[in-house]
Design a protein around this nucleic acid. Sequence first.
DNA 1: TCCAAAACTAGACAAGCGTTGAGTTCGAGC
DNA 2: GCTCGAACTCAACGCTTGTCTAGTTTTGGA
Lengths: 201, 201
Amino acid sequence: MTQAATPAPTTADSPPQSERKGERTRRRILETARRLFAELGYERATIRGIAAAAEVDKSSILQYFGSKQQLFQAAVHWHAPIAEMTTDDPAQTVQNLMHGMLSSWAADPDSPMAVLLRTSMTSEEAAGLLRHHITTEIVDVIAATVDDPEARLRASLAGAMLMGIAAQRYLLRMPYIADAGLDDVLRLAGPAIREVIAPAS
Amino acid sequence: MTQAATPAPTTADSPPQSERKGERTRRRILETARRLFAELGYERATIRGIAAAAEVDKSSILQYFGSKQQLFQAAVHWHAPIAEMTTDDPAQTVQNLMHGMLSSWAADPDSPMAVLLRTSMTSEEAAGLLRHHITTEIVDVIAATVDDPEARLRASLAGAMLMGIAAQRYLLRMPYIADAGLDDVLRLAGPAIREVIAPAS
DNA sequence: TCCAAAACTAGACAAGCGTTGAGTTCGAGC
DNA sequence: GCTCGAACTCAACGCTTGTCTAGTTTTGGA
C-alpha cells in the first residue's frame, strides 16, 4: 500500500552527481528494467533477472516499487515533447515528428514508448497506458494544428503509419526497412504521411 | 524432430464432415491455441489453459504437437494469397492489398498473421518467422510488379504502414482508428500508401 | 465378436515464478 | 563511539508452469 516513501525534496529527475544513495539504486533498477522489459516482454522479464542484471537483490526491487506491475508502470512512464515539434506548417510538423521519433528510437531502442508498444501487443493494461499516452500527448496535439473535421482520425492514421515503420525498423528489424538509411526512409515515406495529415497542401 | 505423423492421405484442409476423430481434435486444439495465443501472447497462453478451453487433456496437446513451441509454430503457419491480388496496375494492387488485409483482420482477429505479429514483438523466434513470411510471400511479390530500383524498400515501407494501421485498429484498438469505418480508413490512408509504392502514377 | 492400434486421461515431477518477512550492513547525527 | 533509521540481503513460502510416464478408454477392420 504505502509507496516507498521517497524523501526527495529536490527535483526528481536528471542525475545530480551523487544524491541520496537510494536514488542511484532506484534509477539503476529502472534502467535495467526498461532494457529487459524491452528485450523480453512483460512476463519473460523476471524480477530475478532484472535484479541480477542490476546487481541488486530481488527484494530491493520490491522494496522500491512494491510489485512487478508497479515497476513496469514506472519503467514505461514517459513524456514526449510533441508540442515543441509542432509548427504552423503541418508539413514541417510531420517532418519534425518523423525525424524526431525515428532518430530517438535509433538512439535508444529501450525507450519507454518502445517498451510500452512491445508489451501492449499482449497486455490489455499496457495497451490502455499506450492508448492514453498517444491520444492525449500526441494525437490531440497534432490534431490541434490541423484544420479539418477529421483531424484526429488523420493524425491517428499518420501516427499508426509512423509507428508501423518504426516498429519494423527498430523492433522487428525487417529486411530493407532496417537496412536502409534514415534519409531514404524519410524521403520515401515522408510525403505520403504528410499527405494523410495535410491532404491539399 | 518428427512431425506428429499425420496419416492424412486426403487434403489436409477444410473439415470434410467427419474424418478421422484425431483430426477433429487436432483442429480444435489448433483453433483454440490460435485464439489464446492471440489474446494472451506466447507465455501467458498456457498448455493447461488451451487444453481446458479445447476440452482436451493437456497431455493430448503434447501428444499431437510435441511441445508448446511446436504447437505455436503450427498455430501461426499461414499462406497469404498475395499473388492473386496483384494486377498490372500498382494502384489497384495496393487497393486490393489494403482491403484484403484490413477486412480479413476484421473478420478474424486471431488470424495466424495477427498472432505472429503480436508475439513477434517479444520473441526473436517469432520475429524470424514473421520476417521470412513477409519477405518471401508479400514484399517480393509486390515488388515484382513495381518497376523501380527501390521497389523492395518501397513495398516494405508500404507494408509497414499498412501493418501499423491494422495493428492499431484491430490489436491495440486505438481511438479514432478503431472507431472509424473501413471505408474512411481506406479513403484517407489509401492514396498515401499507394504513393509510396507507385510515386509518379 | 474380438482385439490391436489409436485416442485420450490421470498423476506426478522438477524448475521457475512473484512475493514475504526477518535479518544484516551502512552512514550520518548526537 | 554509539545509535538509529535507511538501504540492502537471505532464505523460504506457495503457486504455476511445461513435460514425462504409465495407464485407461474408444475405435474400426477382420
